[in-house]
Amino acid sequence: MKKLWLRHEMILLVVLVLEILLFNAIGRRFLTADNVANIVRQSVEIGLLALVMTPVILTGGIDLSVGSLLGLCAVTFGMLWGELHWPPWVAATGAVGVGAMGGCVNAALITRLRLPPLIVTLGTFSLFRGLAEALTSGTKAYTNFPASFLALGNSFFLGVPVQAWVFVVVAVAVWLLVHRTTAGRAFRAIGFAPEGARFAGLPVERRIAQAYVLAGAVAGLAAVIFVSRVTEARANAGIGYELAAITAVVLGGTSIFGGVGSVHGTLLGVAAVAVLGNGLSRILSITAFSRELSGILTGALLIVALAAGTLLRRAPGAKGRGRSG
């Protein structure tokens, strides 16, 4: 066991606390109930994608298609409701189903044809977005959803934004899956040594497929929450979310090579990025500029946090000077 202080999660927790202290000291109305709810609302969809990206990356894979799939599911949801007049909650189930099917496409290409996940999901990244645009001719947006549905993205339940409850349920479920089940164990084994996992009789293909299908289904769920929050469904929903989710996962200490990582690390990663973005917008009055600065600082945070972790872990061994290789 690594010492607690050297664990990546610990560094990230310190960063997160520093962020909060800093923004609270110099920002305007940062730690208010309103603003905290704001942060939560704005990070739930990316947070959901990051949660289910974690098992995918643990297996040594990657899913670049979840942002596009979110867009496709949002459009599907809009159509099921607007064109076929399904009730919103049935249409939501449909959106999750479409997400799962999108995940199945990724899973089939990766496990049956043995194509690299990066290539497969780069392909479906374009494919899903293209489909979403084709379905709406690129411009059509579905709006005027009933207030009961919009409550999901804009109301409170027990003093907490409604979608935060959904997030908590998914977070607990994914945490249990990764840290307390044989499936989670298999994800790691596959990430460390896919051949070794096969020789141990683990159902390698099935577990990999499950990770991608889960990612797809939750992308569908995130799409429903997204539509409810912004009150419209259109093809450009979730552009760039896949990279934001991967950033949060990697920032959370999950190795891009697979095997190493944790769901709580991912949660801290999501929080650190969300607080940074929001805090900057509170300091800088010109919001357009704060968006760009937030991009720069998120990138810097990612690199600094990973570098700090590597350097800290190396420090005790480095005393002996000798570094092999």
């Binding site: 089940t181 044989t182 164990r185 790691r188 040594a193 070794g196 141990a200």
Partner: peptide
């Protein structure tokens, strides 16, 4: 034969997940 990064206990149980982890819970 062995997944080097994983603890030996996890290596030893790897082929009998279904037996010692009923329902898939570790």
């Amino acid at each position: 034969g062995v997944i080097l990064e994983m603890p030996i206990a996890q290596n030893m149980s790897m082929a009998i997940h279904g037996l010692i982890f009923p329902g898939g819970w570790l």
